[in-house]
Simulated scan of single mutants.
Amino acid sequence: MSSDDDMPSVNFTVKYDGEAIREHEMDVALLAPALLGMQKIIEELVKASTEGEYKASLKIKGNVKQGSIEIELVTQAIANFPTQIIDFFSGKYTTAAANLITIIGAGGLFALYNLVRKYGHKRPEKIEYLDGDKVKLYFDNETTIVNQNVFIVYNKFEVRENLFKTVKPLEKEGIDTFEILKNGELLIQVKKDEVSRFFPPRLTESLLLDENITYLQIKSISFNLNNKWTFTNGDEDIKANIIDSIFIDKVAKRDISFSDGDILKVRLEKEQYMENDKLKTSYKIIEVLEHIKGSQQIPIDFPNV
């Protein structure tokens, strides 16, 4: 039975440089989130490339060279299941070791950082899946080919968020470059003026924006800062923000009264979006076109002013 120390590992160096750290010091409040971000990125790359059979462990080996901050890191692939450790000279072990070398190199970290550094928040206009687990991405008039696992990781919000954490120290005055080196060879360099390209994309992704004229029957009125009222469209209940300032002003001035069964003819905006991998729907009433009275008056709970 082998120990974790027998599992495949690769060393690489993370380096920050600039006038602010010439004395070989860096605020832990900047460095700690950056290293934790790197840990998460490596975890996702190892998980994707080994189909979840291995997990990543990232350890600090030491600091080298004065005049900058260079931290040598050891990343290790650790088997997720005990049966995988029994014969660590098996094909799976060899594959894991090869994958790890690729991950800390042109086929992994470099490709991931380079995609964001070069294209920022752009989405590929076309995706072409090639043989050998490769994918060809079309951006404007350019194309780039990366491993499918890199593209999968690239599309995860958490990974994009952690990529930004690793370069966020560059926002501080006097820290000018972020680099990743392996065996003294420069793999990745991000400069201060490139940080904005690493801002994580919105957590929510709009999928559909639709507007139509429809009738809604009032179920409850909530006159607050959001003006989110509950309606029925005949088939289901929905909550909608009213952003028609003229209508809201009339309600606030008590120029409009409401009765049980009142119907509003409205311009309704419907948005469907993804949030944390969940499909959600929101509604906005852009304009109230007509107020059709019901029979029984509804009291309105106005906020105290």
Rank of each mutant, 00 (worst) to 15 (best):
D4F: 06
K182N: 13
E19N: 14
R254A: 03
Y283W: 11
D140Q: 05
N276P: 09
H291F: 04
I243S: 09
N212H: 15
E19W: 02
V14P: 07
N226L: 09
E51N: 10
I263R: 15
Y54Q: 00
E19M: 11
D193V: 06
K192A: 02
L208W: 11
Y138Q: 14
S220N: 09
N114W: 09
E171L: 07
K168H: 12
F110I: 07
S295V: 10
S9T: 09
A29F: 08
K126I: 11
L100T: 03
Y54I: 09
I41M: 02
I248H: 07
L289I: 05
E158V: 01
L181I: 07
G184V: 12
V305C: 10
K92Y: 12
N226A: 05
S196I: 02
R197N: 06
G107K: 13
N149R: 10
A20V: 05
R117I: 08
E44F: 04
I248Q: 04
K134P: 02
R254D: 14
V153E: 00
T50I: 04
K284W: 05
V150Q: 06
T13N: 13
L73R: 00
E53N: 15
K168V: 09
K156L: 11
I180N: 00
T281D: 03
V266P: 15
S259P: 11
I41A: 01
G62Q: 12
E70K: 06
I256C: 00
V10A: 04
L207A: 10
A48G: 02
N304A: 07
Y113W: 04
V251K: 13
I86D: 10
S68P: 00
